[in-house]
């Protein structure tokens, strides 16, 4: 409660343009934004750009923030995801590997078993995915977006989103299996 009030007070101060308040918010939420960005961007410099752009947008749109208490982190999270996708689109168009079977309901592979993987290894594997796979996988499997939301976000059909997700999972599963068999990372990369 006390923390929430403090965040709200800080937001109010940040709305008045106080740099110290803006800095507090940045220090509190930028690691989270950076972590999100690092799932989408291969290069650290791009992720840092995402953080910068995220908070430029956060502070410029702060007057429009009418979230409930405790929702500020989610709002920043959502903006950082959008900024990550924007950076990916800006670098080069996201390539979605399509096939004639996109409209066919693909069999969802078994859930990924990632218990034995460290977080860094898992993130590294995700970053090895093709951009289309990676974007859809991140949005659906991690951020919890529906396929319809992903379709609107990425400008694709829900079916394409679904198929991209299925292939992403299948690819990851193969790589994780290979990881289990102690395959050299260079083969995975």
């Amino acid at each position: 409660m006390h923390l929430t009030l403090t965040i709200d007070q800080t937001i109010q101060q940040a709305l008045k343009g106080e740099a110290s308040a803006q800095r507090k918010l940045f220090e509190a939420f930028s690691p989270q934004a950076f972590r999100v960005a690092m799932r989408y961007c291969e290069h650290r410099a791009d992720a840092e750009d995402v953080v910068q752009n995220t908070f430029i947008r956060v502070f410029s749109q702060l007057k429009n923030y009418k979230g409930e208490k405790g929702a500020f982190g989610a709002w920043v999270h959502r903006i950082s995801v959008n900024e990550s996708l924007r950076v990916l689109r800006k670098r080069k168009p996201i390539l979605f590997i399509a096939s004639e079977n996109d409209n066919r309901q693909e069999v969802d592979p078994e859930p990924l078993v990632t218990d034995h993987l460290a977080a860094a290894d898992l993130r590294r594997l995700i970053l090895q995915l093709p951009e289309g796979y990676r974007a859809v996988f991140n949005l659906h499997a991690i951020e919890g977006y529906s396929h319809q939301e992903i379709a609107e976000q990425l400008g694709i059909t829900a079916a394409t989103s679904r198929s991209q997700l299925t292939r992403a999972k299948r690819t990851l599963k193969q790589w994780i299996s290979a990881q289990i068999l102690n395959a050299p990372k260079t083969q995975i990369r």
């Binding site: 990632t114 659906h140 991690i142 951020e143």
Partner: peptide, 24 residues
Amino acid sequence: SDNLKNKLDQEQLEFDTSAAWEQL
């Protein structure tokens, strides 16, 4: 979704907030 997200959030990524703030 939650499992993966929680697992990925466990990763400690080095991020210098002071330097990033100086740029921002």
